[in-house]
Design a protein around this nucleic acid. Structure first.
Lengths: 168, 168
DNA sequence: TTAAACTTTCAAATATTATTGAAAATATAT
DNA sequence: ATATATTTTCAATAATATTTGAAAGTTTAA
């Protein structure tokens, strides 16, 4: 397989995975492109390589910056902006986990907390089942949240080094 | 807040979380409904409560069965099928993780393995960056996969009991 | 068998989400 | 200031995903 072909395959694969994990396909593809490109690229170059419109490229690049996955670079004497990807994978995983936790898990946690606080008659099966399920789901979500928090605080070596040994 | 209102809120919240995590909204809602309902429900009852069509209810219930999240119940002398949810949250988390791993992570792992095996000239920056990034992503994905595998094999108590203490 | 009860299928309709492209806004050099 | 390069916005459009509903299929009882 040639490099050019392999690049396309990587971009496609990463894009698919992204779309299955709530990161839109184009965003994951642009990220993949920047990951495998040695130097920073302009909006123009991203548009060309992925065959997407200017508007799409602009918005996607901004989103990636907001997720903390890529950064802007300014070059002396040049007017356009260059973009390059953070290439440390542990940092990428952290950023994605952090962002999704903030956007999705935290709000749900809040609602579940409210719902599991509701009072009622435990002798009523309808209430009892509701209460139990909601409380259990709340616990599960809190556990997942806690695990993510711990991971987010962890340093790379500590994480990959010790946790995975324990998980062995 | 009344029970009826709380139920709706739970169904809505769980549905939203589901849709953000690649499980379609209706599927997550039907699951939520069955979770908080003491007795098994018929297709008809699910249709009524969530105001969805027969076709949709049928397909969604089948999907939930395929994910291992709900089961059918047959009642003596009755012709229709009843559905009820597995209520053990740890088991729910396991099933979802297992299913998504199988559907999404495993295929990606295969492609990344192929791509990171490609040979080339490490003095060429284009090749070097490609190789390094793909290999790193492969490692990251393998690590995530390994963690999931370990979790899937773990028993509830062992998992929540010891791992989270370590994660403290 | 036949018929009623129930389940499944799937093409068409609807809803949701992503993308385009051209105009407006902004920044920079002269 | 003015022209030019570059970025941003967003209504219109396109692509994708979900839902409907009615017809076809299946099962069971008599």
């Amino acid at each position: 397989m040639q490099l050019a072909e392999a690049k396309l395959k990587f971009i496609e694969t990463w894009g698919k995975l992204g779309s299955e994990w709530g990161i839109n396909r184009t965003m994951a593809q642009v990220h993949a492109l920047l990951l495998i490109t040695p130097d920073a690229l302009t909006t123009e170059e991203v548009m060309e390589q992925l065959k997407i419109s200017r508007g799409n490229a602009n918005m996607t690049l901004r989103d990636l910056i907001n997720w903390g996955l890529i950064e802007k670079q300014h070059r002396a004497g040049e007017r356009k902006e260059y973009f390059y990807a953070q290439k440390d994978t542990w940092e990428i995983a952290r950023r994605v986990a952090e962002e999704r936790k903030k956007r999705e898990l935290d709000p749900v946690l809040k609602v579940l907390g409210e719902l599991s606080a509701i009072e009622g008659d435990m002798k009523d099966p309808a209430f009892k089942t509701f209460k139990t399920s909601v409380t259990d789901m709340h616990k599960l979500t809190k556990n997942i949240n806690r695990t993510l928090d711990t991971m987010l605080k962890a340093e790379e070596n500590w994480f990959w080094g010790s946790i995975f040994k324990i998980f062995k």
